[in-house]
């Protein structure tokens, strides 16, 4: 018996079943609300800005940021929100974000490389679930700090007018994803690897027998 099972009394069990039931009832409706209703990135888009300083020179960083593999390396994590990035061409990929209630937001994303000071832009193609566009810019940092990486991302609230009610949480969530991606980018650039808890031993997959 797992510790989770041991700890779950009748009250926890009933709550868990109620939660599962709610999820099953609400999820299909919510999925219909968001699917293909992203609209376009207009005046009502949520603006997310994040920055990080990386101890590498701008040219070296620009090269890393233009890499087609980068989005997958930065966004696909075993530790945070579930995002998958599947390449669909040399400059395009399908991003799938798994949100609360198991909702799937799918976007086909096209990327465009640029000069060192603005090495990457991307945008979601029309018709997806999550309309957004972004740009990465590089600026020299002072003294021995390296280079500042600035991300600016605009996200249209999904699910039309209903989604506009959730602008605050959307901004928080998008900001957190962007910040985590920048931090992972910094680690990759400075150390050649991204910190991870993959295969981290824990008692969540445990047996009590020796």
């Amino acid at each position: 018996m797992s510790p989770q099972e041991q700890d779950h009394g009748p009250v926890h069990g009933a709550l868990g079943k109620a939660e599962d039931g709610l999820r099953k009832a609400v999820a299909p409706v919510a999925q219909r609300l968001v699917s293909g209703r992203a609209g376009s990135v207009g005046d009502d888009a949520v603006l997310v800005r994040q920055a990080i300083t990386i101890g590498r020179d701008a040219e070296e960083l620009a090269q890393l940021l233009r890499s087609p593999e980068l989005a997958r390396q930065l966004l696909t994590t075993s530790d945070g929100p579930e995002i998958s990035v599947e390449p669909t061409g040399p400059d395009s990929a399908r991003w799938t974000v798994t949100g609360p209630l198991g909702l799937h937001l799918v976007s086909d994303v096209r990327r465009e490389s640029g000069p060192t000071e603005e090495p990457l832009r991307w945008h979601a193609e029309p018709g997806g679930d999550l309309a957004h566009e972004g740009v990465l810019r590089l600026k020299p940092a002072r003294e021995d700090w390296g280079t500042e990486l600035h991300a600016e991302i605009r996200v249209a609230p999904p699910a039309g007018p209903l989604g506009r009610l959730g602008r605050g949480p959307l901004q928080t969530a998008a900001g957190a994803v962007a910040m985590k991606a920048l931090r992972r980018c910094k680690s990759l650039a400075e150390t050649g690897e991204v910190p991870t808890l993959r295969d981290n031993p824990s008692g969540r997959t445990t047996t009590t027998e020796s």
Binding site: T196, D199, P201, T206, S210
Partner: peptide, 12 residues
């Protein structure tokens, strides 16, 4: 308890 073994994950 018995948990999964620690393993190499990253190259460093």
């Amino acid at each position: 308890e018995t948990v999964p073994d620690a393993t190499i994950v990253n190259p460093h």
